[in-house]
Design a protein around this nucleic acid. Structure first.
Lengths: 343, 343
DNA sequence: CTGAAAGCGCTTACAG
DNA sequence: CTGAAAGCGCTTACAG
């Protein structure tokens, strides 16, 4: 069952009665080829089921036709619990790559890893897409060195002034504001926030501040006593909600920085005898598929992963092609379900 | 911000005062290098931040050090709704690749696409991992041609006698049996099955037969009148459950061929006024993360995706290295939650 | 243990 | 429009 010996462009050239260079021209879609010649070559290609060797081609052109997706979550011991939100992004990024004729290399990284240069230096990929939550301050230095090395990359995340490289992100502040207005509009007054609210996690921080802005418009505010740190996982949400309850500070709503946190929080609240949404209204962020099936179904903020993925790929490709690119903020929209107690 | 001109092994050779061939030997870990020489080279590599050019290396060795994961689901118009079960597999496959020093190319495919040869012929990947449900009979022909071309591949799916290529799968029959024993043990007598139960979908069919075997041990059986076709999606599960109810055949349990189907079915049942599990017990298959959060939490069959991913990668690598490989069936285990009405 | 040299399979100026 | 030739950056027999 040995593979047939490899078909090269020379075999095609011979069969079509042309030079190898002409075969290459046909396959690159060069316009400098006679129509008849082209046809003969294409036929030979089909007959011998020839495929251009990507390595030879890339070695010559110094372009790999491949993008690398680096997915990182800091404390992820377990394979299978990657944040579903990023998985959705992965799906749309893969498709966007395919649409643009590029391949996608996928890799999971620890934030602590030394991932920042490998892919482009070894020519494995023409550029990097960075995805994942993590301590922004801890990896800002890595972004700086990527920029310094001239590596092409785009990042999903908060769009910050003076930030290294380019980012595509959702309007976290507006998303937070929508949640704040919604909960306050339903009469909630003491809204707890589960998730980091500091410049270490700019996305979460923006969501927090957006919510706070909405409250302030009504003469209310987010209480620091009602904020509990949490990374984006169900377990962290559960623990954060328990810490919150242990503080004995009254609250009538929870805004979780992500859906995973919200789902964990609802579990803790319910276990402790609180009714959601009657006693405590809950809202999340991301609109992961699970949100619809949570009990009660989770009110959350939708981010258009399909568009985000396409934009990430297109921006990266533009950057690689030396076309102008800029960071972009995508809209966020509120999805009202039962957990917030509306209707 | 132009990239520094590329560092090659010649630059390293010059700096270390050796030939380029020696540099290459050091980087390939060849034992035929003097310790002192090796040190000098390694230092130069570090100083210039040199990385071996993968294309040049692959062109020379005819090995790419890359595996391709082809994920297909037949009717998947929407990016973001890839079956979570496969996403878990993706996670563990990615990690297994990394452990073995290989890169992973990911691609979503329609079953109808002409994917079967591209990756290996163009040298993009040394082998293929095929993942996805779909009409087995429709793509068995493609497996045959992969074998014929000598392409290296492994497939996640049912392990069937006389099957082309090698497969890693879970013990679907045993999983189905566990569900059948569980439901019958709880006094359920008329168990509906949602999902294809034919050789077009061998995994589903095995689950069906396993359940039937358990019932027969108790003098019961699966009724053809209670079987409804469904692909693995929430929507399909919802529709299938509605068709089932429209038949007006009595049933007291539903065994869904996948968790997604089960979740859709529970929605349809609840909407129609049935209580789960009091009126109708429900069980699924896969144990996707969502299963825990369904309402009620879903009884299901767990498959070890972590081990499955590792085994897929290792089998493929063994095959590429001409080491002996064989198809393997992994164990399945029952996870009892509220939806089946136990306890 | 080390070096000189061939060659992997392409793409792309350069001539014509 | 087409061909002959150089060269991308490695790895690996072949000599020594």
């Amino acid at each position: 069952m040995a593979r047939k010996s490899k078909v090269t462009s020379l075999d095609i050239a011979e069969r079509a009665g042309v030079s190898q260079a002409t075969v290459s021209r046909v396959l690159c879609g060069s316009p400098l080829v006679n129509v008849e010649t082209r046809k003969r070559v294409e036929e030979a290609v089909r007959e011998l089921n020839y495929k251009v060797d990507r390595h030879a081609s890339s070695l010559r052109t110094q372009r790999s036709g491949t993008l690398a997706l680096l997915l990182f979550e800091d404390p992820t011991p377990d394979d299978s619990h990657i944040n579903p939100f990023f998985l959705s992004m992965l799906g749309s990024i893969t498709r966007a790559c395919a649409r643009h004729g590029h391949d996608l290399l996928v890799s999971f990284q620890q934030l602590s890893d030394d991932w920042h240069a490998d892919y482009e230096d070894s020519m494995k990929a023409d550029g990097l897409i960075l995805l994942g939550y993590g301590d922004y301050l801890a990896y800002r230095g890595k972004l700086d060195s990527l920029v310094e090395q001239g590596t092409h990359f785009v990042r999903w995340g908060a769009v910050l002034p003076g930030q290294p490289g380019i980012s595509i992100g959702c309007d976290n502040h507006h998303g937070g504001r929508l949640v704040g207005e919604h909960l306050a509009g339903l009469g909630r007054r003491r809204i707890a926030f589960l998730g980091d609210a500091s410049s270490h996690y700019p996305e979460f921080f923006d969501r927090y501040r957006g919510c706070d802005a909405a409250l302030q418009a009504q003469g209310l505010r987010m209480e620091p006593a009602l904020q509990v740190d949490a990374v984006s996982s169900e377990e962290a949400g559960y623990e954060a909600a328990r810490s919150l309850m242990a503080r004995q500070e009254p609250f009538d709503a929870v805004f979780a920085a992500s859906d995973l946190i919200a789902i964990g929080a609802m579990r803790a609240l319910t276990e402790a005898g609180h009714r959601v949404p009657e006693d405590i209204a809950v809202a999340g962020f991301d609109d992961i598929p699970m949100a619809r099936f949570a009990q009660p179904a989770l009110t959350t903020v939708y981010q258009d992963t399909s568009r985000a993925g396409a934009l990430l790929v297109e921006s990266l490709l533009a950057q690689i092609g030396n076309r102008p690119v800029q960071s972009t903020t995508l809209p966020a929209s509120l999805v009202v379900r039962r957990s917030s107690g509306a209707g």
